[in-house]
């Protein structure tokens, strides 16, 4: 399952253009990694593509950190 964490982190690094070392599990997209609200929408879309899951808007609103993303995908991605 650590594979999920690595894949999530890679997407975050690519989309937000931040250094890998900063993408720790408790990092907040907006507060720690410089994302704005549109960036977070796009991040969620990227997670959906990568893991073949659908993340409804109400769930997406709660994905605020790297850990939130990893947890959601672990709980919902069948093919991951």
């Amino acid at each position: 399952m650590s594979d999920i964490a690595e894949r999530v982190k890679k997407i975050v690094v690519d989309h937000l253009g931040v250094e890998e070392s900063k993408v720790v599990e408790n990092a907040s997209f907006i507060d720690d990694l410089g994302a704005d609200s549109l960036d977070t929408v796009e991040l969620v879309m990227a997670f959906e593509e990568e893991f073949g899951v659908e993340i409804p808007d109400d769930a997406a609103e709660k994905i605020l950190s790297v850990k939130d993303a990893i947890d959601f995908i672990k709980a919902n991605a069948s093919a991951a």
Binding site: L38, V41, E42, M45, E48, E49, E54
Partner: peptide, 10 residues
């Protein structure tokens, strides 16, 4: 529509 980027319009 769900796959349209939030950056499409801007």
């Amino acid at each position: 529509p769900r796959r349209l980027s939030p950056f499409f319009i801007p």
